[in-house]
């Protein structure tokens, strides 16, 4: 079909629109481009995930023939008060790993948007340092800080509060909070860096407008900074809540879950089941429950903090 000059012009005019139309049409063979990535993802992510779910219905020592036990492992998780407490500890960790770092991060940003800080880059680097240190190093350092003859107790004794001194990680009343505070120290740097980055994107004119309207530091923070950081807060919470629930290395290197079971967390239970007590089925079931818990919580967070614009 030969096209008339007019038609050609018409066609040329519509060119961009048509191009867009072609790109939008679904062409099956294009999905082939996804295959290499999908294969790797399936092999290293989806397949182990599916296997974990399968194991969770078995009694298996990891070596010999597994036995199908139905929902027994899940039943054990939800009926054993001990296991439920352990999951409860995981939730408490959220306060220390996510909520406190978030608040500290916001406080630092609130100060920095008001006051010009000299050597900002140095401060930022120093405060971010805990995030990049190996957790074993962090744990060993804190074990020493918390020790009965460590600096915290020395300080307490020096100011006449010697009666409060104790082995902070070895005391039933303080161990969980002490472990949690290590998490706060690790994670607040991450929140801070995310929020500083976010705050720099907020237009100066918004702050100026707020000040012209007579907003004080607090009102300015609530009206300008906080809404402007919604996206960063969402990211920070998703990362830190996941960290909180997955927390293993700090507990492993400080208390091993003790004293008693006061610092046992879900990941520790999973590790013990899979490698020490060789109850792989139970460990798998606990992993599935933990994964679902993380998915639900992070889902709620991202939904609640979704940008409305």
């Amino acid at each position: 079909m030969s096209a008339s000059p007019l038609a050609r012009t018409d066609a040329e005019n519509r060119q961009p629109e048509r191009a867009a139309g072609t790109a939008g049409r679904f062409v099956w063979r294009h999905t082939l481009y996804l295959v290499p990535g999908l294969v790797i993802y399936a092999l290293f992510c989806l397949w182990p995930l599916a296997e974990t779910v399968r194991f969770s219905f078995q009694r298996w020592d990891g070596i010999t023939e597994p036995r199908w036990v139905g929902w027994r492992n899940y039943l054990a998780i939800f009926t054993d008060p001990q296991t439920l407490t352990v999951f409860g500890h995981g939730l408490i960790m959220i306060i220390f790993y996510a909520v406190l770092p978030l608040l500290i991060g916001l406080l630092i940003v609130a100060i920095m948007t008001r006051i010009r800080i000299r050597l900002l880059a140095v401060f930022r680097t120093v405060l971010f340092l805990p995030q990049i240190l190996a957790t074993v190093v962090v744990a060993v350092a804190w074990r020493w800080i918390y020790a009965y003859d460590g600096p915290i107790n020395a300080l307490l004794t020096a100011v006449g509060l010697g009666h409060l001194s104790r082995a902070w990680l070895g005391d039933f009343d303080t161990a969980l909070n002490s472990v949690g505070l290590i998490g706060t120290w690790i994670n607040f740097g991450l929140c801070m860096v995310l929020f500083i980055g976010g705050a720099q994107k907020i237009g100066r004119e918004l702050y100026e407008a707020a000040r012209l309207d007579g907003a004080g530091p607090f009102q300015e923070f609530m009206a300008v900074t906080l809404p402007g950081l919604r996206g960063e807060i969402s990211i920070a919470l998703v990362l830190t809540v996941t960290n909180a629930l997955r927390n293993f290395d700090i507990v492993w290197n400080t208390t091993s879950g003790g004293p008693g079971t006061s610092t046992l967390v879900p990941s520790y239970l999973i590790y013990e089941g899979a490698f020490i007590t060789r109850n792989v089925g139970f460990a798998a079931a606990a992993s599935v429950v933990l994964t679902l818990l993380i998915l639900v919580l992070t889902g709620v967070i991202t939904r609640a903090l979704r940008q409305r614009d």
């Binding site: 020790a147 009965y148 104790r166 082995a167 990680l169 070895g170 004293p259």
Partner: peptide, 11 residues
């Protein structure tokens, strides 16, 4: 003594 639950065996 005190603080034995916060002290490692090595220490």
């Amino acid at each position: 003594g005190q603080g034995y639950d916060g002290r490692s065996l090595d220490d």
